[in-house]
Design a protein around this nucleic acid. Structure first.
Length: 285
DNA sequence: CTGCGGTCCTGAAGGC
DNA sequence: TGCCTTCAGGACCGCA
């Protein structure tokens, strides 16, 4: 489920751990999840860790005379995890239990292991195998504007909304327009802005657009400060295997039938684009 | 353009 | 107990 705050959390933790380390080996346990030649990475040092929307892009050093950059791009999709182990041989991560009841690390869902010269390692786990690692000359940058970038302005947001016939919630999650918002934060941002998820985007008034803009930024910022969300359906864990804490602050997401935090009306759940939307029928218009 | 449904894959949970 | 169905976070693709 990782959305922007979760990937940003991983990015910040990763850069503290892996910058300057040299890759000695890459073990691919599931070919489907690794696109490119792993040999191209061996022997290189990690130079930089970047994030574009929900994509992590790790920049590797160039070899002498090489002209093109080389990046290791990662998308975690629904169930991907990135774990960092000090000693790869007996790594155990106590909280890596999103779907099973036993410790399993490195274990049954590990798809790729990246080993460093000091014995440390990165584990790419992915239960459902939707995620990927792609080697490329450039970072894989989604089309939309990143919520944390300076280009994500009220006027950009308003312009997008005013010309869209889509339901506002679907628009919020459209990575070609805005990158980083997934199901959790779309639901909670709409609640905070008091806007019904089914509202047609272009029907929003200026003051509603402004409220939504501020709500999106606020929710994303809070979630980053909480180290991401690791709730019931969220496979997300941090690189040391610990959970984020933002699930404690969910407003309506996954709160079907529970009282609205503002007016106590039971939260409702509907389907939009095959995904669950949660909202307060009283507060959100 | 919209919205729908199917697709990738696995395991937990609920119904009977 | 056991089998069968349903359901999840993300993104894409094809169809009407």
């Amino acid at each position: 489920m990782p959305e922007l705050p979760e990937v940003e959390t991983l990015k910040r933790q990763l850069e503290k751990k892996i910058i300057g380390k040299r890759i000695t080996d890459i073990e691919i346990l599931s070919k489907k999840n690794f696109i490119g030649k792993s040999e191209d990475l061996v022997g290189r040092k990690i130079e930089e860790v970047m994030r574009f929307g929900k994509v992590l892009a790790i920049k590797l050093e160039k070899k002498p005379k090489e002209k093109e950059d080389i990046f290791l791009n990662i998308h975690l999709k629904l169930t991907g995890e990135i774990l960092y182990a000090k000693d790869a041989k007996d790594a155990i991560f106590p909280e890596t239990i999103p779907f099973t009841k036993t410790n399993r690390m490195p274990g049954s869902t590990t798809r790729v292991i990246i080993k460093f010269s000091d014995g440390d390692a990165l584990f790419f786990n992915d239960l459902r195998k939707f995620g990927w690692i792609k080697i490329d000359k450039k970072p894989i940058i989604p089309k939309g504007i990143d919520v944390l970038s300076s280009n994500f302005t009220l006027s950009y947001f308003a312009n997008l909304i005013k010309k869209s016939n889509q339901p506002i919630k679907i628009l919020l999650m459209d990575q070609k327009k805005i990158t980083g918002i997934g199901n959790i934060y779309a639901n909670d941002a709409l609640f905070l802005a008091k806007i019904h998820p089914k509202r047609k985007a272009k029907s929003l008034k200026d003051d509603e657009i402004k409220r939504l803009f501020e709500s999106v930024k606020k929710i994303i910022e809070q979630a980053i400060n909480h180290g991401g969300s690791s709730g019931a359906d969220e496979a997300f864990i941090q690189i040391d295997g610990k959970k984020g804490t933002h699930q404690r602050f969910f407003l309506v997401y996954q709160k079907e039938n529970q009282p609205c935090p503002v007016c106590k009306t039971p939260i409702e759940r509907i389907k939009q684009g095959g995904r669950s939307s949660f909202f307060c029928p009283n507060c959100q218009k």
